[in-house]
Simulated scan of single mutants.
Amino acid sequence: MSMAERCSRFAESRDKALELFACKGFGQVGMRELATYLGLTPGSLYHHYPSKQHLLLDLIEEFYEELLATLERIEQTPRSRRGNLQRLIRAHLELYREMPWHFRLVERDSSCLNDDQQLRVRQLREQYERQLLLMLGRPRRLSPGALQAAGHAIAILLNSAPRWLAQQALEPGERDELLENLLTGAIERVLAAKPSLQVALA
């Protein structure tokens, strides 16, 4: 088997591991079960990842790298703040359709990582949140702590919104339009926060 074939096969295994973790719960899956599910020997799996936490970190890093790449693509054709916000919302909705398991895994299982791994995830998340604020034109009248909290709040809105209407009987276009309207209003309110809200946001 060529190196390219090996890499392709292992990428498929990672995708299957992601789905298993997202469906069953990271804490409910052992290394032996994971190896069996992937059609690998435990030794082969340990060769690539010393622990399942290392695999989880790899999948979460992939998620944030894709988010940052999405922001970079939007920034290459800058528009007004409102134009950027609309493109940002649409890009997040599209990314959710492409990577639903990643969104679920990051939200639910990040706390299963060790301290050093959680620090790495926090660094990636904060980098993403800073980029969001820079793209949207961060409010200058907020304190540094309130700015950080605003970026975090906006990220939570963007990344949780695709699930809000998942159980509603809506056409995809209707769902996206409603979510875009909800998110636009909520995020514009955050960006327009008055100095008196600094304490509430911090």
Rank of each mutant, 00 (worst) to 15 (best):
A35F: 09
M135L: 14
E188M: 15
R138Q: 12
N159G: 15
A186R: 09
R120C: 15
I187K: 04
P78G: 01
A186L: 09
M3W: 04
R79W: 09
Q123M: 11
Q28A: 13
T184F: 04
L55F: 12
E174T: 14
L183R: 00
V29I: 02
S51Q: 09
V121L: 10
G43D: 12
V190Q: 00
E66N: 06
P172G: 02
D176Y: 06
Y64T: 06
G185V: 12
A146V: 04
L142M: 01
G137N: 05
L133C: 02
D109W: 02
A169I: 10
A91I: 14
L55R: 11
I89E: 08
S51W: 00
E129F: 11
A200Y: 03
T36Y: 11
Q168D: 12
L45Y: 09
Q127V: 07
L45I: 06
I60G: 05
E75L: 06
E5K: 11
Q118E: 03
A200P: 04
E177M: 15
R125P: 01
L113T: 01
A35H: 13
R120K: 15
L191M: 14
E5D: 09
M135W: 06
D15G: 15
A202G: 06
S51Y: 07
R6A: 14
L95Q: 11
L182I: 08
L165S: 02
I74R: 02
L124K: 02
L57K: 04
S111C: 09
S111M: 07
Q148C: 03
H54K: 06
L134N: 08
D109T: 03
Q117W: 04
Q86F: 00
A11C: 05
G27S: 12
L179M: 07
W164L: 02
L170P: 02
L179P: 12
A11G: 00
Y128D: 03
H47P: 01
E107A: 12
L201Q: 07
V199F: 11
F26K: 02
E33K: 00
E12L: 14
K16F: 10
L165A: 07
